[in-house]
Simulated assay, not measured.
Amino acid sequence: MDIYNKKLPTVKQLQYFVAVCEERSFRGAAEKLGVSQPPLSVQIKELEEKLDVMLFLRNSHNVVLTTEGEALKLRVTRLLNELCTITHAIKTKDVAKPVFGTTKTLSFDFIPSIKLFFSNFGEQIEIYKHNYTSKELLLELQKENIDFALVSDYPMRNQNDNSLLIHREPLLLVLPESHPCSQQEKVDLNDVTDLPLFWFRSYLNPVFYQQCEHVFKTLNFPLIRRAELPDSLSMLLEVSLGKGMMLLPQSMAQAKVTGVVYKQLIRNQDRKLSIPVYLMWRKNLPKNSLNDVIITYFQDKLCDV
């Protein structure tokens, strides 16, 4: 019999066999493997048919290895341990997956160009486990806890930084459905100064705060500010009652709330209030083909800035 023979057992069948041997129970083996019992039984039956021997004597209460089963268990256990050793040895020679941090300010699932990147590279990168702000991610880059970061903005940006501007995220105006401007396709902030704006404090994002202030100061009347509530849903409910309005990144404006509408701003305001999104990478980023491909991908593919 050669190594390409279709009657050779599969690795899965051998794994299932060893699990039953160790647990002395089909139910216990199924739980250990994280599968249901019927497919486990099918795999064992197919293994016995391929080998043309009975491996287990079983009834509703007990599972006993036959003489052939005992002999096979020793060989298969050695074989699977050797396969594990080989696999581990190969993996340790592979390039470590670069770790990506993504700011919680934006929802990248709703930014098509960046979502496509994660779809294409999902198997080759690792997403950082912490849900951090841009400021926190920059600290993680400095500590070399992550390799890349997608941040929505950051202070004191230096042209020598390892960074690329890859996207501009527009802000949408969130209005009560009862407001007259809710019927317009695009809204001028000058026409909604009768509503207070839920707004963040400057220390949370000084650069973007000042960017917005430059636009707000050009309005005919000053905007009334309301302190942000603890969560977006509470603010959306307030907006639905006509008690205020919001400016949200387009990718975060997905919640459907009765009495609330999302509107684009007029062209001039829309551009000036967009949020720049940067790809950052750490200064001592390992020089390898995967990291080069990632940076090149963003340089070549993401041209929506």
Rank of each mutant, 00 (worst) to 15 (best):
P38D: 07
K73S: 04
T87M: 12
N62I: 04
E49P: 01
F108S: 04
E70D: 04
F56S: 01
G101V: 06
E70P: 00
R58P: 00
L138Q: 06
K104D: 05
F56L: 02
C84D: 14
L72D: 06
T67I: 08
L116W: 06
F118K: 06
Q43A: 15
H61N: 10
E49H: 08
G101S: 05
T66G: 03
T133Q: 06
T133R: 11
E140C: 12
L106M: 09
L106I: 11
D52T: 07
N120C: 09
T67W: 04
K73D: 01
V99M: 06
V99D: 03
D52E: 12
L80D: 07
F110R: 12
P112A: 03
I125K: 07
R78W: 05
V64R: 10
A89K: 12
F121K: 04
G101R: 08
I125E: 05
A71L: 11
V95L: 14
M54W: 09
L83I: 15
K104I: 12
K91H: 10
D52F: 05
Q43D: 09
S60Y: 00
Q37A: 05
N81I: 07
K115C: 09
M54A: 10
K32H: 05
E70R: 13
E70T: 07
F56N: 00
S134R: 05
S60A: 00
I44E: 04
L33P: 01
S134E: 02
V53L: 05
F100H: 01
Q124T: 08
G122P: 09
I127W: 03
R75K: 15
C84M: 14
F110Q: 09
H88T: 15
T85K: 13
F121H: 02
L80T: 08
L139I: 14
Q43C: 09
L40I: 04
L65P: 02
K50I: 00
H88W: 11
K135N: 10
V95T: 13
F110P: 00
Q37Y: 03
N59G: 00
K93E: 14
S113L: 09
R75L: 15
P38L: 08
I90C: 10
L55D: 01
E49F: 02
K135A: 15
V95N: 12
N62G: 03
L138F: 04
F56R: 02
L79T: 08
